[in-house]
Design a binder for these strands. Structure first.
Lengths: 228, 228
DNA sequence: GCCTTTTGCGACAGCTTTGTAACAGTTGCA
DNA sequence: TGCAACTGTTACAAAGCTGTCGCAAAAGGC
């Protein structure tokens, strides 16, 4: 269906818009631009983007209001919205997320961080494993039915263990650091102890061992974990 | 282990400097700032950074001249320099690299791209960081899976031995002094006995000997060690 | 050949990293 | 409400790795 993901950037200030647009294009995204909330709504109706970058302060229809509207309609609800705000108060962060925004960036923000957040949101919507069937060795993970089999035997995993296994299976053999796993499995801004990863790997191993022999997860001392 | 890498940013225009500085900090780099070439030289002498971001246009001592100077002195030659330029002609690109700059970015540049280039350069200096596959003779080291094979046989290395081998394999034939190895494998600020290197080379040799015949590591009496 | 310097390497104590059970807090649901 | 499943943290033990020492062996120097 699509090549690169489509990003809708809604920002009224020209300088900001150009800087962001430049970096988004350089990242290889297909770009849609809107200066006002109303304009954004038209574009969304016509060409639904994969993700929306939304400035908080907009003339006419404010970003926060637009976001609320989007999250009300079922056909646009699924599109992730990343809010960009000049204000940094905690209140705003909470309010921003309350309106249904999926993530939130406060100026001055790091472009690299923003790009990372965009990528995280995109991964959420079109994750490599969503609807995909991952196979490796005697393992089989179905992203659509959320079922996992080992050597034909179905095994029961909790949500976190499922995502953990899916992440490892996306790139079999590759070593993931605990930080990378926290990032991909738990999410960027959640703070959890590094060691929590170990515990979940342990749980995953236990579940796997009940369906087949041998440990498919490799511990790489000093670095992290890998599949196979 | 090693702390975060130190980046020296030399840029006279405040707006540019602040934007870059912000993004570099957000990436977790330790940051040194200089506004002029002369200032940069002082800082480099005092606290050698891991990498230098250098604006082409600088008052007093121009970026290109500073770069040439740095590449002349042996003690600063190894520090990678990434030039930032306002002009985009091919001529300049070539000239920039001719002066010894390791990479080159033309304004307007994507911050993400710049960061990527910085990381590439850092990886060159700090070994074994990324997913490179190094091969030499019957040896094969995969940075992504952290696996090492000799003549097809997998061998098990501890983290330090792995990094040591990776360092040697990055420049086969080159003789590394014990100090250089301590610097690259153990990290700049850790103090360990010089002789510790010998012990680890010994361990590495032992591990290698279990997978194949012949010692691929050469001892250069009075100097250090080299691969092949 | 003898003496000096340098390197190889076994041994070991101490340390860091990892595995795992236990526990308390949460959430979702009947 | 109570229950069941799941989560994150902690503490402790086990495993594995590290750095240093000491002495033997090797390599030069003369």
């Amino acid at each position: 269906m699509t090549g690169q993901p489509t990003v809708l950037l809604v920002e009224d200030e020209p300088a900001q818009r150009e800087a962001l647009a430049y970096n988004l294009r350089a990242e290889g995204f297909a770009l849609l631009l809107a200066e006002t909330g109303a304009e954004a709504e038209l574009i969304i109706a016509e060409t639904p983007p994969d993700i929306i970058l939304l400035d908080w302060m907009l003339p006419e229809l404010s970003g926060i209001e637009l976001c609320r509207r989007l999250k009300m309609r079922p056909e646009t609800r699924a599109i992730p919205v990343v809010m960009i705000s000049a204000r940094g108060e905690e209140v705003d962060r909470v309010r921003g997320l309350e309106t249904g925004a999926d993530d939130y960036v406060v100026k001055p923000y790091s472009i690299v961080e923003l790009m990372a957040r965009v990528r995280v949101q995109l991964r959420r919507v079109r994750p490599a494993s969503a609807g995909m069937v991952l196979e490796h060795g005697d393992l089989r993970l179905d992203g659509e039915t959320h079922r996992v089999h080992r050597a034909g035997v179905e095994l029961h995993l909790g949500p976190t263990e499922f995502r953990l296994l899916a992440t490892l299976m996306e790139r079999p053999g590759r070593v993931f650091t605990r930080e990378a796993l926290l990032d991909r499995v738990w999410g960027r801004d959640i703070y959890v102890e590094t060691r929590t990863v170990d515990v979940h790997v342990g749980r995953l191993r236990k579940a796997l061992s009940e369906a087949g022999a041998g440990d498919p997860i490799r511990t790489v001392r000093g670095s992290g974990y890998a599949l196979g």
